[in-house]
Amino acid sequence: MADFAPPDDGRRACNTESNRSGEVAEKRHHHSPKPNGTNRRQRKPDGKRRPHSSQKHFSGRGHAKHGRQAYAALDLGTNNCRLLIARPSGQDFTVIDAFSRVVRLGEGLALSGRLSDEAMDRALGALHVCAEKLRRRNVYLARSVATEACRRAANGERFIERVREETGIVLDIISAQEEARLAVLGCHVLLEQGNSPALIFDIGGGSTELILVGPGEGAVPRILDWQSVPWGVVSLTDTVMREAVQARDEVERLAVYAAMRRTVTESFAPFAERIAKSSREDDIRLLGTSGTVTTLASLHLELPHYDRRAVDGLIVPSSSMRNISTRLSRLSEAERGQVPCIGPDRAELVVAGCAILESILDLWPAHRLGVADRGIREGILRSLMAGDFASVQSAGKT
């Protein structure tokens, strides 16, 4: 049983803002309307490209005044490449630049055990954009991580080296445990208030992390137990849902969906048994961070297009998420592509996410689900800023 608490000095926010469909947490990351600065420092004096390390200070002048430096977090997942650049702002931070692109790095990995050339090329295209943003923003401290696809692929390490050679970005392949820790650190402020047990989950492209948390010594909850399973929206689609391409009608699509549910539920079984007692307590809390939960939350709100401000921090009835999942599982891929907030990009993968979500609701039957459009990147930024600030304070005392 895992037992550790992520370092963080952030504060838990109260869910006080409301609308007709649910409650929205006050605490958000504020996006600067006019990003500042274009100071480029692309190369070393010898003319070689400076590597963007997985955790590296880019200024040679030592620690500058905390709060004025730009920090960056890059998360290369199985499905998406995401970058966040921010400056500290009190107990939170202000986003000054961001980037996200669907790269499908893990496409075909579940069957071949390797990253395909096409997938690596897509990821490298996105990483070149990230490298340019890091240079243009003159980032002071950054961390870049890769998750399940690179952990699992036989050629994952070689791909990491290719990324360093071609973009200057040094990716750190993190463990599933570190991925869970960062997810909690990034989104825990959106947990509903209370002392009851809580489950935080992250449905990724190649894996799903489940984290049982309880009250911690400070604002950050204590991680009591966790599990990572190798089923995310890409890996589950590649191994099970491909059969749905040949499904001729709704009955066959539902049969494929049931097969996905069984696959995921079986993988959750050891964790479900360990947390069974906690799941039966009163007022259990649930918080999810992933494209699946944010997409389904958008459908719950009946939004014409995705709006992070409406979704991040929303509290949704679990029954609504189940109903939406069931409805989507009955549709063909073409029909799902016509649904607002899904579109062609998510049409193929969203059903696998629904199957994972329903399996989570089975093992943790909370009546309400908190929705977070934040996670690993925000956790990385909090870690970088807290650690750098502690170093500045320590240096000032010597």
Rank of each mutant, 00 (worst) to 15 (best):
R50S: 03
N15L: 07
L171N: 07
W231D: 09
G125P: 04
L185W: 02
I360T: 01
L109V: 04
E302G: 05
S383K: 11
S207K: 04
A244G: 01
N323H: 07
L357H: 12
Q227E: 15
T16M: 06
S278G: 03
N19K: 03
G370Q: 02
C150A: 10
L109C: 12
V351C: 06
A131N: 05
L299C: 00
H63W: 13
Y140I: 14
L287S: 02
V233G: 11
D3E: 14
V245M: 08
G379F: 12
R330Y: 05
L109F: 03
S116R: 07
A131S: 12
S359Q: 08
E179R: 14
G370M: 03
Y257D: 11
E243D: 10
F159M: 14
R143I: 04
G10C: 10
G108F: 00
L357C: 08
R68E: 14
R181C: 13
H52F: 12
A183C: 14
A119P: 03
E273Y: 01
L115S: 11
E161T: 15
R248E: 11
S267H: 13
S112C: 04
L199E: 02
V316Y: 05
L349Q: 02
V311I: 15
V229T: 14
A146N: 05
I275T: 07
A372Y: 03
P365T: 11
E333R: 15
I223G: 04
G67Q: 09
P230V: 13
S332Q: 00
A272K: 03
T263Q: 12
Q42T: 12
R262S: 10
G186C: 09
V256A: 02
G396V: 07
I356D: 02
L331S: 05
E192C: 05
Q338M: 09
P45S: 08
I380K: 12
G379A: 07
L303H: 05
A176Y: 03
I275K: 07
G379E: 09
L84K: 13
V24W: 04
G204W: 01
S319T: 13
N79K: 05
T208I: 11
M1N: 08
S320W: 08
V213Q: 01
I356V: 14
E132H: 12
A110Q: 12
P197I: 01
E217H: 13
F93M: 11
C130P: 03
E252R: 15
L287E: 04
